Amino acid sequence: MAESTYTYVLTEPAGQVRLLLNDIPVGDPATAVFSDAEIDAFLALEGDSVKRAAAQAIDTNATNEALASKVLRTQDLQTDGAKLADAMRKHAAALRAQADDEDENDGFFFEVLPLTGAPCRTERTQYPYGC
């Protein structure tokens, strides 16, 4: 099995995905949840959309958390994997909504059409139009 690599370069899409899903290897790169290959796979699956790739990675983490943690209670400590997973999924949904908004705003807000073939009307004004 090939060695997993973990990089965090904010000018690269993979680094931006890591930033959004808070998978920032601090000190020891092995503390990262996802390898570079996994981040690249999320990007490929989501059409190179950083926010959608981060959302998919968060959903994957949420599923893992729900499966692994469940509800645990000790003397003065309680964890609830389902609640954490739900919060993570809401974060993923928010990222997808942002990506959708950006996609809608990538198009033109208006289109300039040439006025060819329009009848030439002269008005008794200083600024004729339509000619």
Rank of each mutant, 00 (worst) to 15 (best):
V50P: 01
F108H: 11
G27Y: 07
D100Y: 07
L43R: 05
D48F: 05
E12W: 06
L77M: 14
Q16E: 07
T31Q: 04
Q126G: 09
S69M: 15
A2P: 02
G15E: 10
V71W: 12
Y129N: 13
A41G: 04
V17K: 04
L67T: 10
Q98D: 04
P25F: 09
E65S: 14
R121K: 12
R124S: 09
Q16T: 00
N105K: 12
C131I: 02
D40L: 15
Q75L: 13
N64E: 10
I24M: 00
T74D: 08
R96G: 00
R52D: 05
Y129V: 15
G117W: 07
T122V: 15
C120I: 12
A118C: 15
I58G: 00
G27P: 05
E12A: 05
L19V: 06
M1E: 11
T122E: 15
R18M: 06
L113T: 08
K90N: 06
D48T: 02
N105H: 13
V33R: 10
P119Q: 13
T122Y: 15
A68G: 07
T31I: 10
R18Y: 06
L113N: 02
D106L: 15
T116H: 10
L72W: 08
A68R: 08
A62S: 04
A92M: 14
G15Q: 05
G27A: 11
I58E: 05
M88P: 00
A66C: 05
E46A: 11
R52G: 00
A118Q: 14
T60M: 15
I58P: 03
A118I: 15
A32N: 08
E12F: 03
D36E: 05
C131H: 00
S4A: 14
D100F: 02
Y6I: 03
D103M: 15
Q126S: 06
A30S: 11
N105G: 07
L72T: 05
D101L: 15
T5K: 07
D100G: 01
A66S: 03
L43I: 06
V17F: 01
A41S: 02
A32E: 03
A37M: 04
A66L: 11
S4W: 09
A57P: 01
L45P: 03
M88H: 07
Y129S: 15
K70H: 09
V50E: 01
Q56P: 03
A54L: 02
N105I: 14
L113W: 08
V26K: 15
L19A: 03
P13K: 12
V71D: 10
A94Q: 13
G15P: 06
T116M: 12
R96C: 03
R124T: 09
K70I: 12
E38D: 11
A62P: 00
Y8D: 04
G47T: 01
P114N: 14
T125A: 00
Q98S: 00
K83A: 09
A85Y: 01
L21E: 08
Q56M: 14
V9Q: 13
E12Q: 08
D103F: 13
E102M: 10
A62V: 03
A87E: 09
E12Y: 04
L115A: 11
L20V: 06
L20Q: 06
E123C: 12
D23C: 09
L21C: 10
